[in-house]
């Protein structure tokens, strides 16, 4: 990939990230009920995906890198699943 298209790619991504930031702040002031959290986390997820794909160039990395990153998120999911299955089934006072 040549230097110019790299530059455009990074600039467009930066602008998209800042637009998503503005969007998430705007959405936080709307009354969407429980969907406020869903929208906020969805926009965070979109920003995260952009950073992984463009800035960290995840598509160009080898399979081992995918495995390492996937393992991180997989164990995170295990931690959340086991912990929440405990806390969500208890009575809180």
């Amino acid at each position: 990939m040549n230097a110019r298209s790299n530059r455009n790619k990074f600039l467009i991504t930066a602008i998209a990230l800042l637009a998503l930031l503005a969007l998430t702040i705007w959405a936080a002031f709307l009354n969407l009920g429980p969907f406020n959290t869903v929208v906020a986390l969805g926009i965070s997820g979109a920003k995260m995906a952009l950073i992984f794909l463009v800035f960290m160039d995840i598509r160009e990395r080898g399979k081992l890198v995918w495995l390492a990153l996937g393992a991180g998120f997989f164990w995170l999911a295990i931690m959340f699943a086991l912990a929440m299955s405990d806390f969500m089934t208890r009575g809180w006072e």
């Binding site: 998430t24 969407l32 406020n36």
Partner: peptide
């Protein structure tokens, strides 16, 4: 950022 700054803003 949204978990800290953006809950209960509406």
């Amino acid at each position: 950022f949204p978990l800290i700054y953006l809950i209960g803003r509406n």
